[in-house]
Amino acid sequence: MFKALSTRFLQHLLTQNSWANALLQPYAGKAVQFDIASIKANIIILEDGGLVMAGETNIADATVCISASLLLRLIAQDEAAKIQIVISGDTHLATEFAKVLSNMRWDYEDDLSKLIGDVSALKISQFGRDAATGFKRNSIQLAEMLSEYWQEEKPLIAKNRLVEKFNTEVDTLRADVARFEKRLTKLTQQQLSPQHQTSDSSH
């Protein structure tokens, strides 16, 4: 049921973004697995450039893995987060596929207009867009306020500056420990070598 509905949605999405068919057709028959926040979905590219959910026993040719934290950063349009997406298998296929998917747009206003008419669809879409923008702005403000409170008033979160200082200290300590370990090994070898020679000469 889920697969049938998802497939229907993917097909609908491709009807609205027909430019994608030609780009996907060279990869017909290939499957890409998306592992987003531990939710897995295998998508197959069809011979006509369409997209469908894979069946029960499909083995993906490529995997795109996005953790929950990375997903939040991607939603917040953090460009640096894109390079942290883990791709395995046929990387060329996965990269091209992800590129096509990210450029697809769901024209929900057009879908809505078929149900309730153009004017109502436009009004509802505008309201939805405004609400989403407001929600995003308020969420960012709330997050900034909370982080400031937990950094300054009731320290729960470390400041960036302090984390960087701590990291530098850890690096210095690690280098010191490595140097000390090497010196210790050298001293142990020096201490062992005369004994080794003595035991050899006794035979």
Binding site: A4, T7, R8, A28, L46, E47, D48, G50, V52
Partner: peptide
């Protein structure tokens, strides 16, 4: 009818 429509969608026929 839904099963048959799904089969047509999966076919990739153009």
């Amino acid at each position: 009818r839904g099963w048959k429509r799904f089969a047509v969608e999966i076919s990739g026929v153009r």
